[in-house]
Write a protein that binds this DNA or RNA. Structure first.
Lengths: 184, 184
DNA sequence: AGATATATACTCATCCAGTGAGTATATATG
DNA sequence: CATATATACTCACTGGATGAGTATATATCT
């Protein structure tokens, strides 16, 4: 019940969708953009990118049509569908991460695309994330309190997680000033 | 080049091996032990545990033999092989994690088993981990320095990672006192 | 006595994550 | 002239993870 139970740790998927909101593109280009803009947030290999795009297509979030090129290999031009657009904005405004890693990854990714496509909802996204952190800090604190004292390693692990969450609070407070996000 | 590039993020595997060092056991029991002792360090579902054990068997790290029971379903009794033992102790003394998550997970797991099976090498394990952190802090700092200023999100991500590494340094210093690990 | 919950012990189908190598061509650089 | 880099994508394979299913035994509650 600790990690890995992502209601969806799937944001490279959403990031690819997010780049397609701005207009049609193809796998190679999307991967390039991704690496340039979010390469230190996530790592996404080229083949992974293609795999995800394939999945998005079979799901109906994007549509592909082949564009022949005279000299270079043909491109699969990709467009986001109405369904994909819907899924993307749902993720953008509703998704929240609760552990250090997923906050760094998911939250930053959401912030990036909110800035691009929905600047007006940034403060709402920000607030729902901070609330989430607040409440998971409380949960962790009570968990630690009630942990049998002989569970040394579990305690050390939870302690570090708690400290990491507090660190993230400070980091987010800095983001608030950097992005001029108003309180409430 | 940021996350996910674990030379092996495989420590639940090694943890299962580690429990088998103490003597033969079976899947159900190993999963129970795991959850009780490291359940807040890792999450490992029962079916995952069985899947990993199956893999360890085909690799030759453990051997299985069926023990019929009168009333309850038969058990697959598992024993660690010489090869498995070798792999385990190599991991115990050589493995190192470099990001926040893998340190929390892997390092704590190694510490747990070192305490059980190799208390004399704890201080060596501890030191190689702190050295690793030290050097990855340095790497991160130079990376951040040379990051083009327009890469706002990459910078935020790396900043947080850096702060997390510093946090881990403090956390590990506390572990040193708690476990009476000598410096050098 | 009967119902329900919990513990024992494991299997299976399914999907997502991730790597590494391969294929093929074009243009730029030494 | 050779080599490196950029364009554009495919494939095979392994590992990670969940959720549900199977089957029986014992303990607990009413």
């Amino acid at each position: 019940m600790t990690e890995n139970k992502h209601s969806g740790n799937l944001s490279p998927e959403f990031a690819l969708l997010g780049f397609l909101i701005a207009g049609q593109s193809h796998g190679y280009d999307l991967h390039q953009k991704f690496t340039a803009e979010l390469g230190h947030v996530w790592h996404l290999s080229q083949s992974q990118a293609y795999a995800i795009l394939k999945r998005l297509e079979t799901r109906g979030d994007i549509s592909a049509h082949i564009v022949e090129q005279e000299k270079l290999p043909a491109r699969q031009m990709l467009r986001i569908t109405a369904q994909g657009r819907k899924r993307f904005f749902e993720w953008l405004e509703l998704g929240i991460g609760t552990n250090a890693r997923s906050i760094r990854l998911e939250f930053l990714t959401r912030l990036f695309f909110a800035q691009l496509h929905r600047p007006e909802s940034i403060s709402q996204i920000y607030r729902s994330q901070t609330n989430e952190i607040e409440s998971s800090i409380v949960k962790l604190e009570t968990l630690i309190e009630h942990l049998p004292p002989e569970q040394v390693y579990n305690r050390l692990s939870l302690d570090l997680r708690l400290q990491q969450l507090r660190l993230i609070q400070n980091w987010m407070a800095e983001i608030r000033t950097q992005f001029h996000i108003s309180r409430i």
